[in-house]
């Protein structure tokens, strides 16, 4: 547990000192959403109809944007090899790095999402559900993305490849995240969607660090 916290703290302080990463992710998130009113027209009803989906897709792309650097910098400067040699189980290391990734990207996205909901004219009844769905969904995105980030280490064209690997696996989270918000706005029971989102998170929590650690092992072999 101490080692776990130490890695989380290290990654967080790196993110804070190297500056702008989280800010840029949030800016990307906001800008990507702001493009839509220009693309589909500023008609309030149309925007309200697509708001949940647009916010989710933008959050998904923003979370993916920073994934490439999750292990890449450690891989390049050799600290990843030291981490694999440490007595800490590699799965714990991967989980710690993913937690740090979520704290620096997922959390700011959740904080920024109500602002975007206002801009996109989302029904006010949907705000708490939006935040709750993102809170359940974005950790899964970081977890699944962590596996992808570990797989592409040392490959050519890492960034584009990462999106090809990770986006198909993000689809279930997207489907249930959006339908939870839509159901809540439409006045339906959204419990089932939240349970599925929670289920995805609970399945990803043990499985993704495991797969990610396997990927790191073969990358540093």
């Amino acid at each position: 547990m101490r080692g776990f916290l130490a890695i989380v703290r290290r990654d967080l302080s790196l993110a804070v000192r190297q500056g702008m990463d989280s800010v840029m992710v949030v800016m990307f998130f906001v800008l990507a959403c702001v493009l839509f009113p220009f693309g589909v027209g500023p008609e309030p009803n149309v925007l309200a109809r697509i708001a949940a989906g647009v916010i989710w897709v933008a959050a998904l792309l923003a979370a993916m944007l920073s994934l490439e650097r999750l292990f890449q910098t450690d891989y390049e400067d050799g600290s990843l090899e030291l981490l694999t040699l440490s007595p800490l189980a590699l799965e714990v290391v991967v989980l710690a790095k993913i937690v740090a990734h979520w704290l620096t990207t997922g959390l700011p996205l959740i904080v920024a999402s109500p602002l975007l909901a206002v801009l996109m004219n989302l029904d006010a009844a949907g705000y708490p559900y939006m935040v709750l769905a993102l809170a359940l969904g974005t950790p899964s995105l970081s977890l699944i993305g962590g596996v992808g980030a570990a797989l592409i280490l040392g490959s050519r064209r890492g960034g584009v490849l990462l999106s090809l690997l990770v986006l198909p696996l993000y689809i279930p989270v997207l489907i249930f995240g959006v339908s939870a918000v839509d159901a809540a706005i439409g006045g339906f029971e959204a419990k089932a969607q939240f349970l599925v989102l929670g289920g995805i998170l609970l399945a990803a929590l043990p499985l993704c660090p495991w797969a990610g650690a396997a990927a790191l092992r073969q990358a540093t072999e």
Partner: peptide
């Protein structure tokens, strides 16, 4: 399938391509 094939071909060392893409297949 397309992601698998892309990952397979993304490494200079074919051995790495096999292993990385094998993990991806199992996740999928």
């Amino acid at each position: 399938y397309l992601g698998y094939m892309a990952l397979q071909n993304a490494f200079d060392d074919p051995e790495r391509g096999f292993k990385a893409s094998a993990i991806l297949v199992l996740v999928g």
